[in-house]
Design a protein around this nucleic acid. Structure first.
Length: 410
RNA sequence: GUGGGAGUAGCUCAGUUGGUGGAGCGCCGGGUUGUGGCCCCGGCGGUCGCGGGUUCAAGUCCCGUCUCCCACCCCA
């Protein structure tokens, strides 16, 4: 019996693992500069937390969540996203009473039971940010700006779309208007959308079926239905974004799949990703903290799909680095062992070939691990009390008298 | 959950009407008594995804199943 990783669950081996770390590192540097601090949150939670925050009727909760009963009889879920846990932690630890506003970030695996596809795995990785306690439009613009800076640092090209989906005051009005419009043209909608009409008519705006798109293109848009406060808020967000030099497009048909969003929503998309084109997305969720039992607290955030970003990173050729020690015979090998320990203590990457094969095979190994230099210790070197140093880029080789000189040459 | 395509060496793939499974790359060794990349030669390496069926005989035909890829759906 040979074991394989489960469907949609992948190992990240070098160099993919290094790509992963690069994305995480870039993300952290960008958000830490903006004052975000890391929270390390549990990978599983009480299942009810996600039902209440993400939405009872969403596919994530109804079909895609890994739910199981633990040995204490609790209904437990592997987290399908990060915001619910962050909000839970924010409330649980009374953070609202300790800080005027809070900026958190998190990185880690998420789980959804879906059919695997390009850019979609059952275990996938997100890096996300959350801001609590700020209702001002400047916060929206800043968060979107931070998100843009992450992708820019990674040289990932994107299109940014923003929209406002209003608040609980104005959204119902729009919902009514949309519903009224769609009902007149029900027979033109796809079967899926006919179902959405009942559950969540806003999602019809998202449909990819051509006939639905045509209907939607004539449908009323939410931006015409915003209440005064939401309209002013959205206007300010757009102004500040321009001020910050963040390029964006207003997409009045942009909606989000999670129930907790209010007002500002945004999506960073790439054209190079196939069907799963969203690389980073988020929005404001002013009602969520109170919905989960905390005090009225405005909040917003976003999550980035690390796996999807990785697909967009340009391939870079590995540069040669460090030293590879080639030896002949036991005595030379012993000197080699001492040498790599010495070099490492000086902060230099150093390796040796323990197999003690031919010079040729050791040289091959040095090339294979992309070493920059080879230090040769053989009979001649032992006899003459020197080291040979070969530069694998230039192919030039020279005699080195001692460790001091070696360090100076590296 | 639905639909299409695909599983043969570590990787990428070829394999004729069913008749003892190949190449390239990689790895190891040699050509070079102590020198990588290029070239030449040799070697290691296979339950042909798994299970069943048809057949004298199955990588090849049939059924089932698992996995991968792509799309729907969903979403970061």
């Amino acid at each position: 019996m040979v074991f394989k990783s489960l469907r949609g669950v992948e190992d990240l081996l070098p160099p993919e693992s290094e790509k992963f770390e690069k994305v995480v590192k870039t993300f952290k540097e960008a958000v830490e500069k903006a004052g975000f601090r890391e929270v390390i949150l549990p990978i599983f939670e009480e299942a009810g937390l996600f039902a209440r925050s993400v939405g009872e009727t969403t596919d994530i909760v109804q079909k895609e969540m890994y739910v199981f009963e633990d040995k204490g009889g609790r209904q437990v879920a592997l987290r399908p996203e990060g915001t619910a846990s962050a909000v839970r932690a924010y409330i649980q630890h009374g953070i609202y009473a300790k800080e005027p506003f809070t900026k958190w970030f998190y990185v880690g695996p998420m789980f959804r039971f879906e059919r695997p596809q390009a850019g979609r795995r059952r275990q996938f990785f997100q890096a996300g940010c959350e801001v609590f306690g700020l209702s001002q439009p400047g916060a929206d613009a800043e968060v979107i700006g931070v998100a843009a800076s992450i992708l820019e640092s990674l040289s990932v090209e994107f299109n940014l779309e923003v929209n406002s989906i209003g608040c609980e005051k104005c959204r119902p009005r729009y919902r009514e208007a949309l519903l009224e419009f769609l009902k007149l043209r029900v027979e033109e909608l796809c079967p899926d959308c006919k179902g959405r009409l009942e559950r969540n008519p806003l999602r019809v705006l998202d449909c990819k079926v051509e006939t639905c798109k045509e209907v939607v293109s004539e449908a009323p848009v939410i931006t015409d239905y915003l209440c005064d406060e939401c309209r002013v808020h959205f206007q300010k967000v757009k102004e500040y974004l321009s001020l910050l030099g963040v390029g964006f497009k207003v997409n009045p048909r942009l909606v989000r799949g999670l129930d907790y969003y209010t007002r500002t929503v945004f999506e960073f998309k790439s054209e190079k990703l196939g069907a799963q084109s969203t690389v980073l997305a988020g929005g404001r969720y002013d009602r969520l903290v109170s919905q989960l039992g905390g005090p009225e607290t405005p909040a917003l955030g976003f999550a980035m799909g690390i796996d999807r970003v990785m697909l967009l990173l340009p391939q870079v050729e590995e540069e040669r680095e460090g030293v590879f020690v080639v030896t002949a015979g036991e005595e030379a090998y012993r000197k080699g062992l001492e040498l790599i320990a010495f070099l490492r203590s000086k902060g230099i990457k150093a390796q040796i070939d323990h197999r003690q094969g031919s010079f040729k095979s050791q040289m091959k190994a040095a090339d294979r691990v992309r070493a920059k230099f080879v230090v040769i210790i053989g009979e001649e070197e032992l006899k003459g009390d020197f080291l040979s140093l070969k530069d694998l880029d230039t192919g030039k080789q020279e005699k080195i008298s001692g460790l001091e000189e070696l360090l100076a040459r590296l």
